[in-house]
């Protein structure tokens, strides 16, 4: 009879208390399972809350780090790289497990890279190297470091990094040399320089209208600007010759100065845009090359 009463009480408890309470009662392990299941369903926001709950509830330092790492994964899926990095920094004090600590450092570097904070990303990669020495030689760490260098336009440093990466990965000498050589020939020699230089484009347009735009790679705009300046100067001369001096100044010189100074500014802007777009496509090519190297080494 007593056993039946206890059984009934347990049933009532299980049915009456909400899921939240039951999960609380069952501890952080249950929440971790639930969080994993939410993550598996693609519910990143809900999963990140559940992982945070594990972090909040658990007394086990290792489990807290694990929950934090998984939360960072969920947040990365939502594109919240900065917040993921902020949360991961809570686990930096954890030193009991080398591989977990290395994972935290790597994820921090990755999140900062994805957030566009390349200096912070680099500093965590260096910390990872310092902590683990050469044993930190995971492909993804080398790849991330290369990508960070690319984002920082350190094209020359990438050649040295590539050599070290291949050496650490145990690639045969010939393969190593050929890959580094390929990078030097295809990327290092053709790296984007300061051309077109916005300052120079402005200077050209200052002395010969339209030439700055031509130099920046927009000849159409150059011709249009030069023609506008000629037309306004022509209007000025024509009106002045006919004795309309005030009209010549207002309707001739007014538009001329606008076209002249506007043309100089436009030449600089076009050069800036062209240079940036060249840099972006070059960086994308280098990133693609580094990803291919990592994939090859992985195979």
């Amino acid at each position: 009879m007593r056993l039946i009463s206890v059984f009934c009480l347990i049933c009532i408890f299980l049915c009456a208390t909400p899921l939240t309470e039951r999960l609380f009662a069952e501890g952080s392990g249950k929440w971790l399972e639930r969080a994993d299941s939410l993550y598996g369903e693609g519910l990143w926001f809900e999963a990140s809350i559940a992982y945070e709950r594990v972090y909040y509830l658990s007394d086990d330092a290792q489990q807290r780090v694990l929950a934090n790492l998984r939360k960072a994964e969920a947040m990365k899926q939502s594109g919240e790289f900065s917040r993921a990095a902020g949360d991961l920094q809570r686990s930096l004090v954890f030193t009991a497990d080398d591989s977990l600590r290395a994972e935290v450092l790597y994820q921090l570097a990755l999140c900062f890279y994805l957030d566009g904070d390349y200096s912070a990303s680099r500093s965590f990669i260096m910390q990872l190297r310092h902590d683990r020495g050469n044993s930190s030689g995971r492909q993804e760490v080398f790849l991330l470091e290369g990508l960070v260098m690319s984002a920082q336009s350190q094209w020359n440093e990438i050649a040295g990094h590539l050599d070290y990466w291949l050496l650490e990965s145990g690639a045969p000498g010939m393969v190593r040399d050929s890959i580094v050589q390929y990078y030097k020939v295809n990327f290092l020699l053709g790296q984007p320089d300061s051309i077109p230089d916005p300052g120079r484009a402005k200077l050209f347009s200052t002395f010969i209208p339209g030439t700055g735009q031509v130099y920046a790679g927009a000849p159409g705009w150059g011709v249009l600007n030069a023609a506008s300046q000629l037309a306004s100067l022509g209007a000025f001369g024509l009106m002045a010759l006919n004795g309309y001096y005030i009209a010549a100044v207002i309707a001739g010189l007014g538009p001329f100065q606008a076209f002249y100074f506007g043309g100089i500014r436009q030449a600089g802007e076009i050069a800036e845009q062209k240079r940036n777009s060249r840099l972006v496509s070059f960086r994308a090519a280098v990133d693609g090359f580094l990803i291919n190297v990592a994939a090859e080494l992985e195979n």
Partner: peptide
């Protein structure tokens, strides 16, 4: 009970600045 524990967790999230999560 669970209500109090849940509220404690919400307060913890609020103290961290996780406002969307708290609201959810």
């Amino acid at each position: 009970g669970g209500f109090r524990r849940e509220v404690d967790f919400i307060l913890y999230l609020m103290s961290r600045g996780d406002l969307e999560e708290s609201l959810f």
